[in-house]
Amino acid sequence: MTSSPPRRICVLGSSGAGKSTLALRIAETLKLPRIELDELHWGEDWTPADPETFVARVDEAIAGDSWVVDGNYQSKLGTRILERADAIVWVDPGRVTIMRQVIARTIRRAGTRQVLWNGNRETWDGFKIWKREESIFWWAWHSSGQARTKFGAIMGDPAFSHAQRRRLRTRSEIADFLEDLSAKSRST
């Protein structure tokens, strides 16, 4: 990374990889607004925003000079966030860690009835893997390989060479990354 911390950061990762947690910690460290794409995408009762509305919400959110975006949605948004980002961070802990984290998260959210975006809550249906795409566990397991291919391509794509790019695989790498950001933030 350069001597000053980035101001527009895109955090990518599979479902359950830890991207929301990392994005929150980056935003707190650098005192930047955090944009959670799930919040802009999901309406009440898990109703997705229509494509035009979703794109308009995201464009408005990333119009500023500083932000941390957490989420993927490239199939709906294209590369608009990646093109504006001055740093792209890929959280890639591996499938076993992803599954452990998604199971723990779902138990916590369903057990406490935690309110997520726009009044939505996760339910115990996440455990119903026979429902395939309706199960967060099935989704996390099956999408993690595809995500690794997609994010690997993004990290190597010269179209995004304007941005600093980091792939973080372990808690130690994440801690070092956050410490580096914090040090740069203190020195500016």
Rank of each mutant, 00 (worst) to 15 (best):
E133A: 01
A49P: 00
V55M: 11
K76V: 05
S161C: 08
S3R: 12
S143C: 09
R148G: 05
F160L: 03
R8V: 01
E36H: 06
D125A: 11
H162F: 00
K128I: 03
A49C: 06
Y73G: 05
A147G: 08
A110W: 03
A56F: 03
G94F: 09
D157I: 13
I103P: 05
Q164E: 14
G126Q: 01
A87E: 08
R167L: 14
L22K: 07
T149Q: 10
S185R: 07
D125R: 14
I62P: 07
W141V: 02
C10K: 05
R166G: 04
T106C: 10
I136R: 11
I103T: 06
D70C: 08
R171C: 02
I107Q: 04
P93S: 04
I9H: 05
I136K: 11
T79I: 12
A27C: 14
V68G: 02
E44H: 03
S15D: 04
R84S: 02
F151L: 14
A63K: 13
C10M: 13
R171G: 10
V55T: 15
C10P: 01
W124Y: 07
L24G: 13
S143G: 07
G145H: 03
R113Y: 13
S75V: 13
W42I: 09
P51A: 15
P48F: 09
S172Q: 06
G78H: 11
L116P: 04
F137S: 11
W117I: 09
A147L: 12
F137N: 09
S20L: 09
F54W: 10
D45G: 11
Q146N: 10
D125Y: 11
R34H: 03
A153T: 12
W67N: 01
I154F: 04
A23S: 12
A163T: 06
D50G: 12
R25I: 05
H162K: 06
Q164R: 08
G126C: 08
T29G: 00
V115G: 07
G43C: 00
R95K: 15
R108N: 09
V102S: 02
P6Y: 13
S14Q: 08
I81S: 09
V68D: 04
V11A: 10
W117H: 14
S4Y: 12
A17C: 15
W42H: 09
R121M: 11
K184W: 06
S187P: 04
S161A: 14
S15W: 00
R166L: 10
K31F: 11
V102R: 03
E122K: 13
R167M: 14
E44I: 00
V89F: 02
W90Q: 00
W138C: 10
S143N: 15
Q164D: 12
E52N: 14
V89N: 00
L168E: 04
R100E: 05
P48K: 03
I107W: 15
W139V: 00
F151M: 15
A63H: 14
V96T: 05
G16I: 00
F127G: 06
S20C: 01
F54G: 08
A175N: 13
